[in-house]
Nucleic acid binder design. Structure first.
Lengths: 326, 326
DNA sequence: CTGAAAGCGCTTACAG
DNA sequence: CTGAAAGCGCTTACAG
């Protein structure tokens, strides 16, 4: 690979001049510029980003820390981040942390040593300090973890309210909410939205805990239906949980949505592949990813942020696991 | 962040000595070593990988080029690659190419400028030359594209044979194969496996083309069932296609697996979330990803490859869309 | 065993 | 307008 020296020699100028035309900065005569441009083309020269990194202490790379790309919520998010990163000339490094504090620390160290320009975080294991001390731009995605870092999340509370109201409008009288893990902000907010609506309207309800995995959802749903056979609707805190509920319900020969309505949360592609297709509170996942990448790049490039926190709207995706009596 | 100079000053030695203890290479006195180690600890010094990259022309990063992380086959693959990369101290850059030659070229250029150490490719758009001229280690994953580059793939032909034989053993007498795109090696091999078995055994069959998307699968299946209502089994070239077939079949009130058996290919998590759960020819996806990462890192680290090409075995995952008369 | 020096490929004051 | 030089943070011959 040719270096800037080769170009300089070929164009009969100094490396400084080559650098100037490369960066379009500083004066350079028409003639010199033409020679340099020709040399670059002739030699098929590409500036070496490592050398640039060393000087600028910046890398044109951003890190995306997620719990696990294998969780169907994340691929679309990652895709969006990557798409906008590519547009702006950034490259993205994906880090699966498994919410494991040691892995997070290991990644952070590696990324820092590479002059990573910024981080998008969908994780809240390490305390906020660990990130803020890095001294690089951050964006929190899905979960807010410090009011000093810009955040992109969706209106979990409002979405949960709408879901619950919709089940009630459709005639359900005994609604179960299978909530996600405690201290995970979105799970808490969805729970709160559910609770407020059923209490305001005086609807019989039951809340049970669950992981965001299908296996635990099936176990929980099994127990729930045995104990409370008259439950006529489930609001699941995620689509994966809803998928588990659906499976158990069908195995127990419940008619869906006649005997039991089910509504999920997230809007992952899985939902529409199920039969019956899952009604869900859809988050604009791609948009959230894209928004967070833009927010991060703006900070990296020192542009002013007109909005610091985005709370995007959810929309109910009406499909086949709910009735529409309303 | 402290640099090697700070450490040298603190330890009262030269930077050369610090570098020697960092790299455990060259002679250094017990005493000097201790001082340096203490300095490193006291200052919390981490060597800068960018500077190292510049000197060594290597980056401790590997690139993973995939068509689209949003396709459910890839997250698990990516996860595996990332897991083993982390183990060996490498970081992975994910590139969604959409099988678009311009995007691939753009990524290749960016990665090359960063001294990427090697590439795992699951794509075959660019001609082999474009990659081989990069002069860095490569591994082809899922699809072979040159006999000079180590490849990890699964026994698509054999898997397809087994699937077809299984459907026949279970009594199916008119089998449809919905194949994937032409010139995609795995799709071709699966087709070939299917064709050979039905012809050997003299079973009525029909083959139709399809993309690896659920939408096109549903369209194809719809047409297929209308034209040939007596089809009693479908071998789909991927699980996504199978999911589409399943949906259409259920909408047409076919009893599964009584009226119609369905078997997919891939073994993605979606399969078991469906109801009935999908029988499929499962590839060891995680293993394939891990294998390819190891194969790549071995090349990067100039270790001999005892095996250059891996063809891993598939296994039928018996679930609910097939009978088991056999 | 150890340090001074050159070099990896760039960029940017500083002179001129 | 242009070039020589220093510097980004390392590593590694080369002397000693």
């Amino acid at each position: 690979m040719p270096t800037i020296k080769d170009v300089a020699k070929y164009a009969n100028v100094s490396v400084a001049t080559v650098s100037r035309v490369l960066n379009k900065k500083g004066y350079v005569s028409k003639e010199a510029e033409e020679n340099v441009l020709k040399a670059i083309a002739d030699l098929n020269y590409k500036p070496n980003s490592v050398a640039r990194s060393l000087y600028h202490k910046t890398s044109k790379m951003i890190g995306l820390l997620i719990p696990d790309i294998t969780n169907p919520f994340f691929p679309e998010l990652a895709r969006a981040v990557e798409d906008v990163a590519l547009t702006y000339g950034y490259t993205v490094v994906i880090c699966n942390t498994d919410e494991d504090i040691r892995k997070e620390a290991q990644y952070l160290e590696a990324l820092q040593q590479k002059y990573i320009d910024g981080l998008i975080l969908t994780t809240n294991q390490l305390s906020a300090d660990n990130y803020e001390n890095l001294g690089i731009p951050l964006v929190a995605l899905d979960r807010q973890f410090s009011n000093r870092v810009p955040t992109v999340s969706s209106k979990n509370y409002e979405g949960a309210r709408q879901a619950t109201e919709y089940l009630i409008e459709n005639g359900s009288e005994f609604i179960a909410h299978i909530r996600g893990p405690y201290h995970v902000k979105p799970a808490d907010d969805r729970y709160q939205g559910f609770k407020n609506v059923v209490e305001e309207q005086g609807i019989a309800h039951i809340v049970v805990d669950c992981d965001f995995t299908m296996a635990s959802a099936m176990e929980v749903a099994q127990g729930l239906f045995e104990k409370y056979p008259t439950i006529d609707a489930v609001f699941a805190s995620s689509d994966i949980i809803a998928a588990g509920v659906l499976k158990v319900a069908k195995n127990s020969n419940k008619q869906i949505p006649e005997d039991l309505q089910i509504i999920g949360f997230d809007g992952i592609p899985l939902g529409e592949m199920l039969t019956p297709a899952l009604t869900t509170v859809a988050q604009p996942i791609y948009k959230m990813g894209a928004l967070s990448a833009r927010l991060l790049i703006k900070q990296i490039e020192k542009q002013p942020l007109d909005v610091k926190n985005y709370e995007v709207k959810t929309t109910i995706q009406y499909r086949e696991t709910t009735r529409s009596d309303a």
